[in-house]
Simulated assay, not measured.
Amino acid sequence: MPTKGCGIAQHFTILAYCADCGAKLYHHRSITLTKEQESYICSNYQSRKKCTAHYIRAVVLEQLVLQNLQRVVAYAQEDENEFVRRVMENKTAVQRAEQEQAKRKLEKQERRISELDRIIQQLYEDRVSGALSAERFAKLSGGYEKEQEELKQSAKELQAIVNTIETQAVNVQSFLKIVRKYTAPTELTPALLREFVEKIVVHAPDKSSGHRTQRIDVHYNFIGEIDFSPEYSRVSRQTTA
C-alpha cells in the first residue's frame, strides 16, 4: 500500500507544470535523499536541456499548495456570495470584451448564413428555370455552400465563447459543493488534490531582491486560478571572497 507521501508525489507529477515551457515537473528522489531533499524539476531541463530547472523542493511545494488551498477554502466558507462575485470578476474585463465582440460577430455571421440560404435557393430556381447553366450553377453554388459551412463552424465556436459566463456560474456552484464537504484543511492529501486541483504552475526562482523567491499558481477544478498564490522566500546565502 503506497504511503501518503508517495500518493502526494504521484499527484504532483500529474498536476505540476513549468510556467515557462509548459512541460510537466519531474519528481527527483533517490534512496540517498531525505524527504527534505526531494524536489521537482522541469522535465525539459531534466531530459533535453530546453528549459531552466524550475527547481523546487517537494516539502516547499506541498506547503505552498496547502497554504493556497487553505486561503481559498476559508474565503469560500466565510462568504459564499462574495466568493462567487470574486471568481466571476476574476475573468472579467478582457473576457467580457471578448464575449461582446464574439456576440456581435456571431450575430453578423448568422445573418450572412440566412442570406446565403436565400442565395442558394435562388440559384436552384434559376437552374431549374434554365436561366443558369449547369456549369455556372455548380461554380456559384459550390462557393456559397463552402462559405456557409465555414460560417456555421465559426458560429459554433463563437457561441461557445458567448456561453462562457453562464457556464462559469454553474462551475462556481460545483466548486462550492466540494468546499462544503470539508472543514478547514490542515494537511495536504491525495483526496484533497483530486477534488480541488486541476493543475499547479511553478515559476522559476527570482533572486533579484537578494532573496530567493518562488511563485506557484494553483488552478482549481471548475473555477481556475484564484489570486491567493503565496511565494516561498529564502534569504540567499552571500559568499565572501
Rank of each mutant, 00 (worst) to 15 (best):
L15F: 05
N90E: 12
E187H: 04
A93H: 09
T34Y: 04
H28K: 15
D126T: 02
V59T: 15
V128T: 08
Q67E: 14
N44T: 05
F12P: 02
R29F: 07
E198G: 04
L69H: 04
G5N: 13
P230I: 07
E89F: 11
G5S: 11
F222Y: 15
S39C: 11
L192T: 03
R215C: 02
G5I: 13
L132G: 00
L33T: 08
A169H: 13
K50C: 02
G7Y: 11
E98D: 10
H211S: 12
E115H: 12
A169T: 06
Q122D: 14
K91T: 12
C18Y: 05
R215N: 09
G142Y: 12
E38F: 03
S229K: 08
D20E: 12
A160R: 12
R194M: 04
P2G: 05
V72P: 00
P230F: 05
K35N: 12
P205H: 07
L64W: 06
R48V: 12
F222S: 02
L33F: 09
V202E: 08
P2L: 14
C42D: 02
R194S: 06
S154L: 10
A169L: 10
G142W: 13
R57P: 00
L151N: 01
S233H: 06
S133C: 01
S209W: 06
I226G: 00
N81Q: 14
R215G: 00
D20F: 07
Q46S: 04
E157W: 07
L66K: 03
Y40V: 01
Q159T: 08
G130S: 03
V201N: 03
V162N: 03
K139M: 09
Q238E: 09
G130A: 03
A23N: 11
R194I: 01
V94I: 11
Q122E: 11
H54V: 04
V201P: 02
R111W: 11
L64E: 13
Q70M: 06
I113Q: 02
Q77R: 15
S43Y: 09
L132R: 04
L61E: 07
E98A: 10
D126V: 02
